[in-house]
Amino acid sequence: MSGASFATGGATASATYQKVGSIRAERRRVLIGAYIALAVFVVFFLLPPVYMLITSLKSSAEIADLSGNPWIVTRPTLQNYWELLTEGNYLLHFRNSIIVTACVVAITMVISILAAFSLSRMRFWGSGVLATGVFLTYLVPETLLFIPLFQIIGGIGMYNNLWAMVLIYPTLTVPFCTWIMIGYFSSIPKELDEAALIDGANHFQMLWKIFIPVALPGILAATIFAFTVSWAQFLYPMAFLVSSEQMVLTTGIVSDLIRGDTFVWGKIMAGALMAALPPLLVYAFLMDYYIAGLTAGATKG
């Protein structure tokens, strides 16, 4: 009896052993397929930025030469970068972008942290409605309201003024940042407030010494979001800024480097690449925080 059961046990064991082998082979096939798919998409996804780099290293003559392979740089030069950084308004646009983004990020974080603390912890009449309202405003695209905003900006005399951007970008950043922060603050256990209350903290101390440090990952994610949106915004500066010295990078490159029908492609690509660099650097270092915050914000309350 026991011998028989041992024998069948042995048989199944060897059968599973063979199966394990085939599972391993299948897994390897799946993995190879995965890498092939990845390679295809990485090529597709990285093609434009790589081509940006290639073109930016070419002289105008080489770009205009139709006989060569456009994917190869025969005589690399930094001329385009050098000219951008020494002549014209590119540096000014860069500075404008930095000013606008820095101000918008700061304003956004102050507004949304205060509001999120208030909405997630203190509650007042209508706070529930406001929390929902915050989410709905996040879904309002900038193309819906830029025309009345154009009139309003003109009405208060801020047309063609860089600071108008600082005033209106928060409509795009504040709702989502508040939403992320509400989520992070709500995940802080209630007992922590109570402990702080008993330890003698008032509401501002509670926010400053407990909530902000504890929710730092969320704050970082919200900051990156605000940075990304402000840095990339195109419609508002396109509609509200006309003179070159007021422009930011996204509109400045196009407006300054395209004169009528002459495209200075080498410089355009160099300028575009440098404009893309700050967000690329931020993501290279802080990607995980941002993704965690973004997915949490989009999936949770």
């Binding site: 434009p48 930025p49 081509y51 073109t55 195109f234 355009i268 690329l280 993501y283």
Partner: peptide, 13 residues
């Protein structure tokens, strides 16, 4: 990650 206003320039090219 790249601002679309910037990356679209590359596509345009």
């Amino acid at each position: 990650v790249i601002p679309p206003a910037v990356s679209t320039l590359a596509w345009w090219w």
